[in-house]
Design a protein around this nucleic acid. Structure first.
Lengths: 200, 200
DNA sequence: CATATAGCGATGCGATCACATCGCATTACT
DNA sequence: AGTAATGCGATGTGATCGCATCGCTATATG
């Protein structure tokens, strides 16, 4: 372990990562630079460089931070444990949370979308994204499987692929909302229809 | 009209725009610079600057070019006229074309995704994207409406919103394929299932 | 108290960028 | 033939980038 004052290490890192997320949310990944991040965080460029020796590490930290915040937000909305609630309600809540509904969630989704694009050119980010999706899709698939065992959803459905498609739909719709192709209301409605179709 | 030799004007512009698309497809939008574009196109930086006085114009031209190529590819697969074929076949074909199936279509979709992300920070691109989607969704909705009149699809469905959701699903799945979250086979299967559900 | 280590601001450096400028070649119209 | 406009390569420029380096400070440990 390090000597010296390392108590605020994590907090300082998070402050800088949050600044990066803010820049990405309102001007895109291309607007992120060490000096911009420092300015947004209200610290010196030297401090940013101290915590993140290379820009790549800064972006990766911001990516991780964004994922933490996203899943925290979902967890807060869905309650403490995904295992303890009615699967249908949980499914609806989580999928709905993927559709932007206010400035903060809109910012979150913009960041997600930006990093998703970065993954196309950065295998490091892509690999991490695959991990995260594997977990997420598995959790959604578990919810579906539970209601299949309870005879509420047809057993013939492939739980994992159905979950995959549901999330893909929600994210596709979310992308539309972000660029103004569709309204958030329409998007949410289509998600509800898709879930209702499972329980038909 | 201009004097001098303007005969090859459009072709030269397209060559450069194509070079930009190639860069975006395999290294992302961030890798595009005037010199890179010139090198990829095999021309001098001066020529690039001559046809595109500002970088923004270069990117916009590449965006338009990419859209031309995409819709040309879809049109080629779907036949000459969307109005002349069986709606279900047409729907299936077009949606399937949104899922990458070879290196060329994968490159196309990477470019699409990249510009979609750019639209989050560039209102010019976003506005154009909204236009293109409005047209595309309307065409898909028309196909659905036709088979509603033919009693093959339930009349209770909202044609436009159903089309919107179908395309969103296909694009969400396409994004998964690009980052390796899901296989192209799985993605195509889910699209087929979604279409089949309309005709249930 | 001594010392080592982390924190971190300041400054410098080489590379790269978008873009401006210049100048000549090419071609079409008069 | 003369003229004007485009085509376009070459070179310069100021800004910004990521990153290295340096040096001082603050703190925790021996």
């Amino acid at each position: 372990m390090g000597r010296g004052p390392g108590a605020q290490h994590v907090q300082r890192r998070n402050e800088i990562a949050d600044a990066v997320l803010a820049i990405v949310a309102d001007r895109g990944l291309a607007a992120v630079s060490l000096t911009e991040a420092a300015a947004r965080a209200g610290v010196s460029p030297g401090r940013v460089q101290h915590y993140f020796p290379a820009k790549q590490q800064l972006l990766e930290a911001a990516f991780e931070r964004g994922n933490e915040l996203s899943s925290a937000r979902i967890r807060a909305k869905a309650g403490a444990d995904l295992q303890d609630a009615e699967p249908r309600l949980m499914l609806t809540t989580v999928l709905n949370e993927l559709i932007p509904y206010d400035a903060a969630s809109q910012a979150h989704m913009r960041v997600r979308q930006s990093f998703h694009a970065l993954a196309l050119a950065d295998e490091q980010i892509a690999a991490r994204l695959r991990q995260l999706y594997a977990d997420f899709h598995r959790q959604m698939a578990d919810l579906i499987a539970r209601d299949q065992r309870a005879k509420r959803i047809p057993a013939a459905l492939d739980a994992h692929n159905t979950a995959l498609a549901l999330v893909a739909l929600a994210e596709g719709l979310a992308a539309y909302v972000l660029t103004g192709v569709a309204s958030a209301t329409t998007a949410r409605e289509r998600v509800l229809v898709a879930v209702a179709d499972l329980y038909r």
